[in-house]
Nucleic acid binder design. Structure first.
Lengths: 204, 204, 204, 204
DNA sequence: CATGAATGAGAATTCATTCAT
DNA sequence: AATGAATGAATTCTCATTCAT
């Protein structure tokens, strides 16, 4: 009995993910989810309060992962030149992105490209805002450690680099055919590009 | 043969721009446009064949400007180190972007952020595709002129820089309060960042 | 001035005929007629009271011709074996049909196939009814002249032969490619078929 | 997965048949069907995908019957003089038509007289085309069996006799008050008429 | 006469959600 | 928990016609 319930719930989530991903939040109807999952339309409401909650539940694992990454990243943060020089460190970062992207490819697409109309439609914007704060803090502490560096970077530019981060992810997930090696190549280019950019801007 | 007074037409376009910008294409109803402009719903259809055409007409000036910029840019293209070194040239480019963004702030927001559901919803993607082709061509010709440079850049990365270009614009338009000076500061940071990045990547 | 008026009126009628013929009464909009004739929509109402009147005016010549044919036919009616035997007479009849069909091809199509929704939509039915009465009268008088013949023909059958008459016309007008010779061949087959049929039924 | 009770569905079909028959496909609105059947307008769409499907479902039994008749008739076909001579055979044919017409009186009216605008609007035309092919084939095989007969019959005439077949049906169904006996009388007249006609034309 | 503008009724269809059983 | 049924608001769009100027 209990198993049966989970069964239905999972089937709903699977179908919902698929449909939401294919057509976006707004263009996916509860009807469609019901019929494709062979579950009575009104029965869906026994499992999820409404469409938005179903949507959020679909994205829950990704949202969790995002939070984990942020927490880890913030804990991990060590203000040092290392981030600019240590390629190994950078590669590790890149790999963790790839892992995330691989695991949550569909969900990322959904969250960033297809969530208009849902309560998560501002996630991208919110995320950027938060990351911008973190970025500013980072530069401030960097300045404290390396006083000769230039910390006079406009907030807009910091925002932009955060947005770029998401643009990168969007690019990867939009491009279905990238294999692991191509991803690594790409990320290395990106890392090299940004490293040079930041060094130039901060005068280090 | 009916010919409409510009009066009404313009009022419609104004209200439509406002509403579309506020709620996006899909979430804006013809009803709303009608009532906010005090024009009978069915009367709208004497001026625009349908919602999509109204939307496209709102964006027409911007689309025109885009085309002009592209054409001019392509004509203008001169493969040279100058693009990397000549700050004056870069500043000129930056200024032309600022002008575009200032003039079409709302329309840009609309086109890039709120056009889902309309026939222009793929504009961003199409634009990136086209620009990627131009970018690849540019690198190829650059290599011919400066054979010692590295032209081994992945297509994905080129795509990303094009996307970045649009991300930049999106950032500027999302941030309503930027004055001219802040914009210039920001664009200079961006130019410096990218210049350093490209130099590093291409080994020049 | 007067010329101008006729000009517009005629242009309207021409375009209306074309559009009505193409899409039928109901599916043709006044708007379409206005725009295709480059005449202001509301101006149409200076020439025709409403859509239905425009439609009827388009069909007026045909309706006139129909009336003429009926009157002539009724005057002409001479109850005699001749109608069954005299091939020359029959050929004359056939030719007059061809002439009518050739001249009013489009109008006939319109009247019989595309008038649903207009006040003429029952023309076919009304015409058949009227012709049925004539047919019954004819048989009655035939019986008076040739008492040994069988006049016990059901009304339904008489109706059917009238309907057949219209079916014939519909067939000819549906088949755009028939040339004169083919039409004559066809009509002769029809005449021969009906002659034999009637002779058998009436026992003459 | 929703499965509907037959109850409501049937009520809808009944009302739809009535309304469609009264006003034709185009002039019958879903609104009207909803209100006359006391079923919420939007609820109809839980039973039928759209107006056209509702219409086709109403006519489904008739369409089935038509297919059955055609198949049976084609199997049954035996090229012989019998068709011209054997009155018993002809009467059998006539009776089967009567049965069809009695059973599907309303549906036939609907299909042939009121389906403009629906996806079945060309049924009559399509049916005639198909029957014309069958007719030509029949004559060809008849000629093979009875070489002395005349097989030089124009396609247009064959088409016309097929159309006549439908005209007959239309006549019967237009005339609501015919009882069985009158129908038989009428069909016998028709059979006699056609037999004589065909014999004359084919010279047998 | 011509015309720009308006209009109100009506069309089909979709949707998320609710409710009694 | 499951389901059939219902619903009301919303959507885009079409149309014949009228009216003041």
């Amino acid at each position: 009995m209990q198993k049966q319930k989970e069964n239905i719930r999972q089937r709903l989530l699977d179908v919902a993910k698929k449909e939401f991903t294919k057509n976006g939040y707004k263009e996916t109807s509860m009807r469609a989810i019901a019929s494709k999952s062979d579950i009575c339309l009104s029965n869906i409401y026994n499992y999820f309060r409404n469409k938005d909650e179903l949507f959020k539940t679909v994205l829950d694992p990704l949202l969790q992962a995002f939070e984990d990454v942020l927490i880890e990243h913030n804990d991990d943060i060590h203000i040092s030149m290392e981030a600019f020089i240590n390629l190994e460190y950078q590669e590790k970062q890149a790999l963790s992105i790839i892992k995330l992207v691989k695991k949550y490819n569909k969900e990322l697409k959904l969250l960033f490209l297809k969530s208009t109309g849902s309560s998560l439609e501002n996630f991208r914007e919110d995320f950027i805002k938060q990351q911008t704060i973190t970025g500013k803090e980072y530069i401030k502490r960097f300045k404290e450690k390396y006083p000769y560096c230039n910390d006079n970077i406009s907030e807009t530019f910091i925002r932009t680099t955060c947005a770029l981060w998401l643009t990168i992810i969007s690019e990867i997930i939009s491009n279905d055919k990238l294999n692991n090696k191509e991803m690594m190549t790409f990320l290395n280019e990106y890392v090299q590009f940004c490293t040079a950019g930041w060094k130039s801007l901060m005068g280090v």
